[in-house]
């Protein structure tokens, strides 16, 4: 499979403080700290991690909506920086995003027609108002909405319907790559499955590549071909889905998989399986491996040195001294 999007040791550090008089920032939030990953054409890379691990920031970096502080991002082999400099509008058509919260991702003052059609108008993809109507109506039916919804406002829709509108907006520019930033975590369980299946169907039909960001491992397993596990701004492990779920190598991935509650009888003892403590602050990351304060198997070298991210089996990458 050819690669569509790839990141090489990408960094994103946000400054803390630094006002008009104190021009030097007092510290840095290392939101993304050396992420390498790649999304294959027509496939889905699942990106899992706890909140604050830098998943969403990574998504925004790949879309060029944030400028990386270091590292490189490639889109079909071309540096993203170059693409954005040469023709930013053309790149916008190629990469889109669907957000987590459908109640915050649609402008409440715009009708569905404007929300979905605005991109096409902006990029001059339609000749007339009638053509715009037709194109938007076609997109709406593609995501399971009706033409009569065209002139309604977002507040008239349920969460699931809103997410369909957001998907239609992302599809409107006919992109190759879509970042799905927790697209179902704000929805009811019954609606989640519908949206996930819609996304899968669209991927097959339009040969889309997805970066699927989620903290829900079951959903990631359902959606992804490859999976990358992030922790404190770093990718700890990445592998094809089956390999990662059946044979996790990193202690963090192992702990994460064990902490999924299962419906079973007698009820299993989940308390013993949870990962202790909280994710450390990205302002003051621990030295060595970022997971070492919570890792049960940590040894001295884990506290001293960050392990390399290396390929231990074909396609299976891991950053751990103990593997």
């Amino acid at each position: 499979m050819p690669t569509l999007v790839s990141a090489e040791k990408v960094l994103k550090h946000f400054p803390i403080g630094g006002g008009i008089l104190t021009s030097k920032p007092t510290g840095w939030v290392r939101a993304v700290d050396g992420v390498s990953l790649s999304v294959e054409k027509g496939r889905t890379l699942g990106l899992v991690g706890e909140s604050g691990s830098g998943k969403s920031t990574t998504g925004l970096l790949l879309l060029g909506l944030l400028k990386p502080s270091g590292g490189r991002i490639f889109f079909e082999g071309e540096p993203l920086e170059e693409l954005l400099r040469r023709d930013p509008r053309r790149f916008r058509r190629r990469a889109q995003i669907v957000f987590q919260n459908p109640f915050a991702s649609l402008n409440p003052r715009m009708t569905v027609k404007d929300i979905v059609g605005r991109g096409m108008k902006l990029h001059g993809l339609v000749e007339s108002d009638r053509e715009l109507d037709e194109r938007v109506a076609a997109l709406l039916s593609e995501v399971g909405l009706k033409e009569e919804h065209l002139n309604r406002y977002p507040h008239e829709f349920s969460g699931g319907q809103r997410q369909r509108i957001a998907i239609a907006r992302a599809l409107a520019l006919n992109p190759e790559f879509i970042v799905l930033d927790e697209p179902t975590s704000a929805l009811d369980v019954s609606v989640q499955a519908q949206i996930l299946n819609l996304l899968k169907g669209l991927q097959r039909l339009r040969e889309l590549s997805y970066l699927f960001i989620s903290h829900n491992l079951a959903v990631v397993r359902h959606m992804s071909h490859e999976v990358a596990v992030m922790y404190l701004g770093k990718v700890m492990e990445s592998a094809p889905k089956d390999s990662l779920f059946s044979d996790p190598l990193h202690p963090y991935t192992q702990a994460l998989l064990k902490s999924i509650p299962k419906i079973s009888f007698p009820p299993e003892d989940i308390e013993k399986k949870v990962i202790e403590g909280d994710i450390p602050s990205p302002v003051n990351p621990p030295s060595g491996c970022p997971f070492n304060p919570r890792c049960r198997r940590a040894v001295d070298i884990c506290r001293a040195e960050m392990p390399d991210f290396r390929e231990v089996m074909p396609g299976h990458w891991v950053a751990c001294h103990l593997v």
């Binding site: 909506l65 957000f99 649609l106 605005r118 907006r169 520019l173």
Partner: peptide, 10 residues
């Protein structure tokens, strides 16, 4: 997020 979404469509 709709502000970010607006930037995403250019």
């Amino acid at each position: 997020e709709y502000v970010l979404g607006a930037k995403a469509i250019g």
